[in-house]
């Protein structure tokens, strides 16, 4: 469908197709990611949303070569950066991708920095390695980057160790480190989960400012729909190792097509007094990925489940150019349509 169109008009920066990852564990093989597609355009933000353990972090970490293999294993898929295959290798045309083309920040800044190296040294490292700068040059650049990340007294702070920083400051330093080589993609893996709410907003603002300045794309992994609404251009909703709905922010928020997305939204607080509603949790828990269900993974928790959902996995139904949903409700034989459910929910 629109894929060809997309390629012609606005070439995708990164395209991931049919990515599947497994882990050998004590209890058996966990199929953590079961065929995931997503893509991100230059300068845009893609948010991947889902609850803990749905495979959103594993998807990007496997792409970055950050999962331990073994026990991890990429069983299928491809990831193309500007059309060139990068999955399973960390270099493109002899140059390291990580840190230079794609960089990453993580959930817990407290543990994500080396406790025995100064902040400045850690920021300088990628510059020395990828840009070939001398230590002195790189350190000077690190101070500039800290200033860009709005850390006061950057020159002094650069000589300090992680334990002398607060959580928010550390995440700023992480961001400074990630953008040091002007990557085209920044992957932020739950960047604000471990931080206070006020700090969260500052960090998100910083990321947006830097995106405007450098034009990088952001892949934002989160379980916070508020963060998604604030940051994302496109949203992929992930459940049990699969993407169940994908679309623009407006598509996903205002024209939610998958019952899981509906459930997430019903569980999310709203600060608009006119649309206050009682928060409704999604009953039950995600399926056991040691033995993924034959049908739809959400079937057991879905209030609209039909017999077909238990037996067969649904295909992706396109509801717009970018908007698809992976649910049997969109099948022509289905007696109800999600749109109806959606309006019923909101009435």
């Amino acid at each position: 469908m629109s894929e060809a169109l997309n390629l012609a008009n606005n070439p995708m920066l990164l395209e991931v197709e049919n990515l599947a990852v497994e882990f050998d564990t004590y209890g058996g093989v966990v199929k953590a990611v079961r065929g995931v597609d997503f893509s991100v355009e230059e300068g845009k933000t893609l948010a991947i949303v889902g609850e803990s353990g749905c495979g959103k972090s594993v998807s990007v970490q496997s792409m970055m070569g950050l999962i331990h293999m073994p026990p991890g294993r990429i069983t299928s898929g491809s990831a193309r950066l500007r059309g060139e295959e990068v999955l399973g290798r960390n270099e493109l045309n002899g140059k390291e991708i990580r840190g230079a083309e794609i960089s990453m920040i993580f959930q817990d800044p407290m543990t994500s920095l080396n406790p025995t190296m100064t902040i400045g040294d850690q920021i300088a490292e990628p510059l020395q390695v990828h840009r070939g700068l001398s230590y002195r040059q790189a350190f000077g650049e690190a101070i500039n980057l800290l200033e860009m990340s709005k850390i006061p007294e950057a020159a002094k702070r650069a000589k300090q160790f992680p334990f002398e920083f607060s959580g928010g400051m550390l995440q700023r330093a992480m961001i400074a480190m990630a953008i040091s080589c002007k990557p085209s993609i920044l992957i932020a893996d739950e960047p604000t989960t471990a931080l206070d709410v006020t700090i969260q907003a500052q960090i998100l603002d910083l990321m947006q400012d830097l995106q405007k300045e450098t034009g990088m794309a952001i892949i934002l992994i989160t379980h916070d729909l508020g963060v998604v609404a604030r940051m994302a251009d496109e949203v992929a909703v992930m459940y049990a190792g699969k993407i169940v709905e994908h679309g623009t922010v407006d598509d996903v928020f205002y024209r939610s097509a998958h019952p899981y997305t509906l459930g997430l939204r019903a569980a999310m607080p709203n600060n608009d007094p006119a649309r206050q509603h009682e928060l409704k949790p999604i009953e039950g828990s995600p399926p056991d990925l040691f033995a993924p269900p034959k049908g739809c993974g959400y079937c057991a928790r879905c209030p609209f489940a039909m017999e077909v959902c238990d037996k067969h996995h649904p295909q992706d139904y396109f509801l717009g150019d970018h908007h698809f949903s992976c649910c049997w409700l969109h099948h022509s034989d289905s007696p109800t349509k999600p749109e109806e459910l959606y309006f019923k929910e909101n009435s």
Binding site: Q61, M64, G65, L66, H68, N90, E96, I97, R98, G99, A100, S103, M104, F106, D108, T111, S112, L113, N114, P115, M117, E125, P126, V129, H130, M174, M177
Partner: peptide, 22 residues
């Protein structure tokens, strides 16, 4: 298995440097 070694890898550092410095 620590987070900061994962960070070092995500920075694209060569394995020898990760080994000695991190």
């Amino acid at each position: 298995n620590s987070d900061f070694v994962r960070t070092a890898k995500s920075k694209g550092l060569p394995p020898a440097r990760i080994f000695t410095r991190h």
